[in-house]
């Protein structure tokens, strides 16, 4: 076949493909919208069903002393919100959790960097890190209280301990997953070790670090609450323990509800932050954890 004819044919095929792709895009956009709407409606349905079941079972199938009921929980929630009790306790838990979370992320990433710089560092400390990671942190809580007192510090440390290890292991996984060809091409450009790390290795591990940060967010909250359970006179953990000791189940659930809403807000913030930092990624992630 003459070259010119071949060109014309190839060009035609290319144009056809382009128009097909456009069609596909348009169709799938409308499709996606109706699908998210349906999912949203189903979510509301599941929630409503759960509340109805709870109401119906309370007092009939199960003693309402144990499970309370949605109306009483709502009433208690509004009451402790309005008289300032909830906010006063929540503020303390929030502080403990935030400090612990920041500490955990910083130490986790920092430690991963340090062991990566040392010859075989990661391998040397691996059994130690895995061992400490495997200890249930709840078991350490009484000891941590003894060591660090009964105020803010032990709760911060417990919160950090539930964040640190996962961030550490994830960061190392991110370092290991860096594309070797990219490393070679950046080295050929004359990058120093520091430049190689800052410009290539750290940013390419960022999706791993962020996914660990999202996963460990509830962990920081758990750490703070455990600390408050063990020894404290303030915080949402204390509020729950105190209400439970008075058999005020509605208030226990109200406090738990506040934690739930609080976690959802935090998760939304981290997701937004992650999307901003990872704005260079295409919609469908091509590499790294989703």
């Amino acid at each position: 076949m003459p070259a010119r004819e071949r060109h014309a044919q190839a060009h035609e095929a290319w144009a056809r493909e382009q128009s097909l792709l456009l069609d596909e895009e348009r169709r799938s956009a409308g499709h996606r919208r109706s699908r998210t709407l349906r999912v949203f409606a189903l979510r509301i349905g599941v929630l409503a069903g759960f509340l109805v079941l709870w109401s119906a079972a309370s007092g009939r199938l199960i003693d309402s002393l144990f499970v309370s009921d949605p109306i009483s929980v709502a009433r208690s929630f509004i009451q402790i919100s309005l008289d300032g009790t909830l906010w006063w306790h929540l503020r303390i838990t929030l502080l403990e959790m935030t400090l612990g979370y920041i500490l955990g992320v910083a130490v986790g990433v920092g430690l991963a960097i340090v062991v990566s710089l040392i010859w075989r560092g990661e391998q040397i400390v691996r059994p130690l890190m895995l061992g400490v990671f495997a200890i249930p942190k709840v078991a350490l809580a009484p000891l941590v209280i003894v060591w660090f007192g009964i105020y803010l510090l032990p709760k911060v440390i417990l919160a950090a301990s539930l964040v640190l290890f996962i961030v550490y292991f994830s960061t190392l996984a991110g370092f290991a997953a860096v594309n070797r060809d990219l490393v070679a091409s950046v080295r050929v450009m004359g990058a120093s070790r520091a430049a190689l790390f800052l410009k290539l290795i750290l940013p390419s591990a960022a999706p791993y670090i962020f996914s660990a940060m999202r996963i460990t967010l509830p962990g920081a909250l758990i750490g703070a609450i455990i600390g408050e359970f063990v020894s404290s006179n303030r915080g949402v953990g204390f509020l729950i323990a105190y209400a439970s000791s008075r058999y005020d189940t509605a208030q226990v659930f109200a406090a738990i509800l506040s934690l739930l809403m609080f976690s959802l807000i935090l998760n939304a913030i981290v997701s937004r932050l992650e999307k901003y930092v990872a704005r260079w990624r295409s919609e469908e992630p091509q590499w790294g954890p989703a």
């Binding site: 594309n179 060809d181 990219l182 410009k199 940013p203 990872a278 260079w280 990624r281």
Partner: peptide, 9 residues
């Protein structure tokens, strides 16, 4: 190289 080796970010 055959791959573009561009930094995606």
């Amino acid at each position: 190289t055959q791959d573009d080796n561009l930094l995606p970010w």
